[in-house]
Protein backbone atom coordinates (compact mmCIF):
# COMPACT_ATOMS: atom_id res chain seq x y z
CA UNK A 1 0.00 0.00 0.00
CA UNK A 2 2.88 2.31 0.72
CA UNK A 3 4.00 1.81 -2.88
CA UNK A 4 0.63 3.07 -4.08
CA UNK A 5 1.09 6.21 -2.03
CA UNK A 6 4.48 6.95 -3.54
CA UNK A 7 3.71 6.17 -7.14
CA UNK A 8 0.32 7.88 -7.26
CA UNK A 9 -1.71 7.09 -10.37
CA UNK A 10 0.93 5.36 -12.51
CA UNK A 11 -0.14 1.68 -12.60
CA UNK A 12 2.95 0.31 -14.35
CA UNK A 13 5.24 1.90 -11.76
CA UNK A 14 3.03 0.47 -9.01
CA UNK A 15 3.34 -2.96 -10.54
CA UNK A 16 7.12 -2.63 -10.76
CA UNK A 17 7.44 -1.52 -7.14
CA UNK A 18 5.52 -4.62 -6.06
CA UNK A 19 7.73 -6.94 -8.08
CA UNK A 20 10.74 -8.70 -6.55
CA UNK A 21 13.27 -6.40 -8.18
CA UNK A 22 11.22 -3.33 -7.34
CA UNK A 23 11.00 -4.30 -3.68
CA UNK A 24 14.74 -4.96 -3.61
CA UNK A 25 15.46 -1.50 -5.02
CA UNK A 26 13.07 0.10 -2.53
CA UNK A 27 14.88 -1.64 0.32
CA UNK A 28 18.21 -0.20 -0.84
CA UNK A 29 17.13 3.45 -0.82
CA UNK A 30 17.54 4.00 2.93
CA UNK A 31 20.96 2.34 3.41
CA UNK A 32 22.36 3.97 0.24
CA UNK A 33 21.13 7.41 1.35
CA UNK A 34 22.70 6.90 4.78
CA UNK A 35 25.97 5.78 3.19
CA UNK A 36 25.96 8.79 0.91
CA UNK A 37 25.32 11.29 3.72
CA UNK A 38 27.94 9.61 5.88
CA UNK A 39 30.53 9.72 3.11
CA UNK A 40 29.65 13.30 2.12
CA UNK A 41 29.88 14.64 5.68
CA UNK A 42 33.47 13.42 6.08
CA UNK A 43 36.73 15.16 5.26
CA UNK A 44 39.99 13.28 4.74
CA UNK A 45 38.25 10.01 5.53
CA UNK A 46 36.90 11.05 8.91
CA UNK A 47 33.59 12.29 10.34
CA UNK A 48 32.51 13.65 13.72
CA UNK A 49 35.81 15.38 14.36
CA UNK A 50 37.84 12.28 13.52
CA UNK A 51 35.93 9.95 15.85
CA UNK A 52 34.56 7.83 12.99
CA UNK A 53 35.95 6.78 9.61
CA UNK A 54 34.06 7.30 6.34
CA UNK A 55 32.52 4.31 4.48
CA UNK A 56 35.34 4.05 1.95
CA UNK A 57 37.86 3.58 4.75
CA UNK A 58 35.63 0.98 6.43
CA UNK A 59 35.40 -0.83 3.09
CA UNK A 60 39.20 -0.84 2.67
CA UNK A 61 39.72 -2.04 6.25
CA UNK A 62 37.23 -4.84 5.65
CA UNK A 63 38.96 -5.90 2.42
CA UNK A 64 42.24 -6.24 4.34
CA UNK A 65 40.49 -7.97 7.24
CA UNK A 66 38.75 -10.41 4.93
CA UNK A 67 41.23 -11.15 2.12
CA UNK A 68 44.85 -10.03 2.82
CA UNK A 69 47.42 -12.56 3.91
CA UNK A 70 49.40 -11.56 7.00
CA UNK A 71 53.11 -11.39 6.26
CA UNK A 72 55.94 -12.01 8.76
CA UNK A 73 56.13 -8.27 9.55
CA UNK A 74 52.37 -7.72 9.98
CA UNK A 75 51.51 -6.05 13.28
CA UNK A 76 47.77 -5.45 12.79
CA UNK A 77 45.62 -8.33 14.15
CA UNK A 78 42.91 -7.60 11.55
CA UNK A 79 44.41 -9.16 8.44
CA UNK A 80 42.83 -12.09 6.65
CA UNK A 81 40.97 -13.46 9.66
CA UNK A 82 37.43 -12.13 9.13
CA UNK A 83 36.07 -15.58 8.21
CA UNK A 84 37.69 -17.02 11.31
CA UNK A 85 35.92 -14.49 13.55
CA UNK A 86 32.61 -15.23 11.82
CA UNK A 87 33.16 -18.97 12.17
CA UNK A 88 33.86 -18.70 15.91
CA UNK A 89 30.74 -16.64 16.53
CA UNK A 90 28.48 -18.66 14.23
CA UNK A 91 29.62 -21.95 15.79
CA UNK A 92 28.81 -20.64 19.26
CA UNK A 93 25.40 -19.42 18.14
CA UNK A 94 24.74 -22.79 16.50
CA UNK A 95 25.72 -24.71 19.63
CA UNK A 96 23.87 -22.46 22.07
CA UNK A 97 20.79 -22.19 19.90
CA UNK A 98 20.78 -25.93 19.23
CA UNK A 99 20.93 -26.64 22.95
CA UNK A 100 18.11 -24.15 23.59
CA UNK A 101 15.95 -25.91 20.97
CA UNK A 102 16.74 -29.36 22.39
CA UNK A 103 15.65 -28.26 25.86
CA UNK A 104 13.06 -25.59 25.05
CA UNK A 105 10.84 -27.39 22.53
CA UNK A 106 10.21 -30.62 24.50
CA UNK A 107 9.80 -28.64 27.73
CA UNK A 108 7.39 -26.21 26.09
CA UNK A 109 5.31 -29.08 24.68
CA UNK A 110 5.20 -30.66 28.13
CA UNK A 111 4.20 -27.42 29.89
CA UNK A 112 1.53 -26.74 27.29
CA UNK A 113 0.19 -30.26 27.44
CA UNK A 114 0.33 -31.20 31.12
CA UNK A 115 -1.19 -29.10 33.89
CA UNK A 116 1.13 -30.77 36.36
CA UNK A 117 4.21 -29.76 34.36
CA UNK A 118 2.80 -26.26 33.93
CA UNK A 119 2.27 -25.78 37.67
CA UNK A 120 5.69 -27.18 38.47
CA UNK A 121 7.93 -25.56 35.88
CA UNK A 122 6.18 -22.52 34.48
CA UNK A 123 6.44 -20.24 37.58
CA UNK A 124 10.20 -20.82 37.82
CA UNK A 125 10.65 -19.93 34.17
CA UNK A 126 8.58 -16.78 34.62
CA UNK A 127 10.69 -15.72 37.64
CA UNK A 128 14.00 -16.29 35.90
CA UNK A 129 12.96 -14.77 32.60
CA UNK A 130 13.29 -11.09 33.58
CA UNK A 131 16.98 -11.65 34.45
CA UNK A 132 18.81 -10.33 31.35
CA UNK A 133 21.60 -12.42 29.83
CA UNK A 134 24.14 -9.74 30.80
CA UNK A 135 23.31 -10.42 34.45
CA UNK A 136 24.29 -14.06 33.91
CA UNK A 137 27.81 -13.06 32.80
CA UNK A 138 29.50 -13.18 36.25
CA UNK A 139 28.05 -16.60 37.02
CA UNK A 140 28.97 -17.84 33.57
CA UNK A 141 32.60 -16.69 33.98
CA UNK A 142 32.76 -18.01 37.55
CA UNK A 143 31.64 -21.47 36.44
CA UNK A 144 33.12 -21.84 32.98
CA UNK A 145 35.95 -19.31 33.10
CA UNK A 146 37.10 -17.64 29.90
CA UNK A 147 35.96 -20.54 27.72
CA UNK A 148 33.86 -21.39 24.77
CA UNK A 149 31.18 -22.95 26.89
CA UNK A 150 30.62 -19.73 28.84
CA UNK A 151 29.43 -18.09 25.61
CA UNK A 152 27.39 -21.12 24.61
CA UNK A 153 25.75 -21.10 28.05
CA UNK A 154 24.68 -17.46 27.69
CA UNK A 155 23.32 -18.00 24.18
CA UNK A 156 21.37 -21.02 25.38
CA UNK A 157 19.81 -19.03 28.21
CA UNK A 158 18.93 -16.13 25.93
CA UNK A 159 17.39 -18.27 23.20
CA UNK A 160 15.67 -20.65 25.61
CA UNK A 161 12.94 -18.29 26.90
CA UNK A 162 11.27 -17.28 23.63
CA UNK A 163 11.47 -20.87 22.40
CA UNK A 164 9.91 -22.42 25.49
CA UNK A 165 7.24 -19.73 25.84
CA UNK A 166 6.10 -19.83 22.22
CA UNK A 167 6.15 -23.63 22.18
CA UNK A 168 4.02 -23.68 25.34
CA UNK A 169 1.53 -21.33 23.74
CA UNK A 170 1.35 -23.43 20.59
CA UNK A 171 0.85 -26.65 22.54
CA UNK A 172 -1.92 -25.05 24.58
CA UNK A 173 -3.84 -23.79 21.57
CA UNK A 174 -4.20 -27.16 19.81
CA UNK A 175 -7.72 -27.67 18.42
CA UNK A 176 -9.55 -29.89 20.92
CA UNK A 177 -11.19 -31.90 18.15
CA UNK A 178 -7.81 -32.87 16.64
CA UNK A 179 -6.92 -34.48 19.94
CA UNK A 180 -10.34 -36.11 20.23
CA UNK A 181 -10.06 -37.43 16.69
CA UNK A 182 -6.64 -38.92 17.44
CA UNK A 183 -7.89 -40.53 20.66
CA UNK A 184 -10.88 -41.94 18.81
CA UNK A 185 -8.48 -43.53 16.31
CA UNK A 186 -6.60 -45.27 19.11
CA UNK A 187 -3.68 -42.91 19.68
CA UNK A 188 -1.92 -43.08 23.06
CA UNK A 189 -0.50 -40.05 24.91
CA UNK A 190 2.87 -40.34 23.19
CA UNK A 191 1.21 -40.48 19.74
CA UNK A 192 -0.84 -37.41 20.65
CA UNK A 193 2.24 -35.43 21.68
CA UNK A 194 4.33 -36.48 18.70
CA UNK A 195 1.73 -36.68 15.95
CA UNK A 196 -0.80 -34.01 16.97
CA UNK A 197 0.49 -31.51 19.54
CA UNK A 198 3.98 -31.09 18.08
CA UNK A 199 2.90 -30.51 14.45
CA UNK A 200 0.02 -28.30 15.58
CA UNK A 201 2.43 -26.21 17.67
CA UNK A 202 5.02 -25.86 14.88
CA UNK A 203 3.85 -22.41 13.69
CA UNK A 204 4.31 -21.04 17.22
CA UNK A 205 7.56 -22.95 17.64
CA UNK A 206 8.98 -21.27 14.55
CA UNK A 207 8.05 -17.86 15.95
CA UNK A 208 10.02 -18.79 19.06
CA UNK A 209 12.97 -20.04 16.99
CA UNK A 210 13.20 -16.76 15.09
CA UNK A 211 13.12 -14.62 18.23
CA UNK A 212 15.47 -17.02 20.01
CA UNK A 213 18.03 -16.95 17.22
CA UNK A 214 18.00 -13.14 17.21
CA UNK A 215 18.69 -13.12 20.94
CA UNK A 216 21.37 -15.75 20.33
CA UNK A 217 23.29 -13.28 18.16
CA UNK A 218 22.98 -10.59 20.82
CA UNK A 219 24.21 -13.04 23.44
CA UNK A 220 27.21 -14.21 21.42
CA UNK A 221 28.45 -10.65 20.91
CA UNK A 222 27.97 -9.72 24.59
CA UNK A 223 29.71 -12.84 25.84
CA UNK A 224 32.60 -12.57 23.38
CA UNK A 225 33.17 -8.96 24.44
CA UNK A 226 33.64 -10.13 28.02
CA UNK A 227 34.07 -13.83 28.45
CA UNK A 228 35.94 -15.25 25.42
CA UNK A 229 38.92 -14.21 23.33
CA UNK A 230 37.68 -14.83 19.81
CA UNK A 231 34.78 -14.13 17.49
CA UNK A 232 33.06 -11.00 16.21
CA UNK A 233 32.26 -9.71 19.71
CA UNK A 234 35.86 -10.01 20.83
CA UNK A 235 37.13 -8.26 17.70
CA UNK A 236 34.55 -5.49 18.20
CA UNK A 237 35.72 -4.66 21.70
CA UNK A 238 39.41 -5.22 20.97
CA UNK A 239 39.31 -2.98 17.89
CA UNK A 240 37.63 -0.25 19.90
CA UNK A 241 40.44 -0.38 22.49
CA UNK A 242 43.12 0.08 19.88
CA UNK A 243 41.14 2.84 18.13
CA UNK A 244 40.30 0.89 14.97
CA UNK A 245 36.76 2.26 14.47
CA UNK A 246 36.86 1.13 10.82
CA UNK A 247 37.07 -2.48 12.03
CA UNK A 248 34.39 -1.81 14.67
CA UNK A 249 31.97 -0.68 11.97
CA UNK A 250 32.91 -3.49 9.56
CA UNK A 251 32.34 -5.88 12.45
CA UNK A 252 28.88 -4.42 13.18
CA UNK A 253 27.87 -4.75 9.54
CA UNK A 254 29.05 -8.37 9.60
CA UNK A 255 26.94 -9.12 12.68
CA UNK A 256 23.91 -7.60 10.98
CA UNK A 257 24.56 -9.57 7.82
CA UNK A 258 24.96 -12.95 9.52
CA UNK A 259 22.05 -12.38 11.90
CA UNK A 260 19.95 -11.57 8.86
CA UNK A 261 21.17 -14.64 6.95
CA UNK A 262 20.44 -17.03 9.81
CA UNK A 263 16.96 -15.56 10.18
CA UNK A 264 16.44 -15.96 6.44
CA UNK A 265 17.45 -19.61 6.75
CA UNK A 266 14.86 -20.21 9.50
CA UNK A 267 12.12 -18.46 7.54
CA UNK A 268 12.83 -20.67 4.55
CA UNK A 269 12.88 -23.80 6.69
CA UNK A 270 9.52 -22.70 8.12
CA UNK A 271 8.17 -22.14 4.63
CA UNK A 272 9.09 -25.65 3.68
CA UNK A 273 7.97 -27.40 6.87
CA UNK A 274 4.67 -25.52 7.16
CA UNK A 275 3.48 -25.98 3.61
CA UNK A 276 -0.01 -26.93 4.86
CA UNK A 277 -0.22 -23.74 6.88
CA UNK A 278 0.81 -21.51 4.01
CA UNK A 279 -1.85 -23.01 1.76
CA UNK A 280 -4.41 -22.57 4.50
CA UNK A 281 -3.67 -18.86 4.82
CA UNK A 282 -3.73 -18.51 1.07
CA UNK A 283 -7.16 -20.10 0.79
CA UNK A 284 -8.76 -18.03 3.51
Amino acid sequence: MAAAGISGANPSLQGFLRSRVGKGLLALILPLAALFLWQASGTNGAVAGGALPTPDRVWKAWLVWAFDKPGPMTLSPYVGNWMEAIAFSAMRVAKGFGLAVLVGVPLGILIGWSRLAASMVDPTIQWLRPVPITAWLPISIAIFGISDFGAVFLITIGAFYPIVINTTQGARDVDKNWIRAALMMGANQWDILRRVVLPAALPSIFTGLRIGLGIGWTAVIVSEMVAVKSGLGYVLWDAYYVGRMDIVIADMVSIGLFGFLSDWAIVHLEHWVLKWRRMQNFNQ
Binding site: D175, N177, W178, R180, A181, A182, M184, R195, V196, P199, A200, L202, W276, R277, Q280
Partner: peptide, 13 residues
Protein backbone atom coordinates in the same frame (compact mmCIF):
# COMPACT_ATOMS: atom_id res chain seq x y z
CA UNK B 1 -16.60 -46.18 18.05
CA UNK B 2 -15.70 -44.18 14.94
CA UNK B 3 -16.58 -40.50 15.31
CA UNK B 4 -17.33 -38.19 12.39
CA UNK B 5 -17.01 -34.56 13.49
CA UNK B 6 -19.03 -31.58 12.38
CA UNK B 7 -16.17 -29.84 10.57
CA UNK B 8 -14.36 -33.09 9.70
CA UNK B 9 -11.47 -32.07 12.02
CA UNK B 10 -8.84 -33.65 9.79
CA UNK B 11 -5.21 -33.15 10.75
CA UNK B 12 -4.29 -30.33 8.36
CA UNK B 13 -0.58 -31.25 8.02
Amino acid sequence: RGVVFQEASLLPW
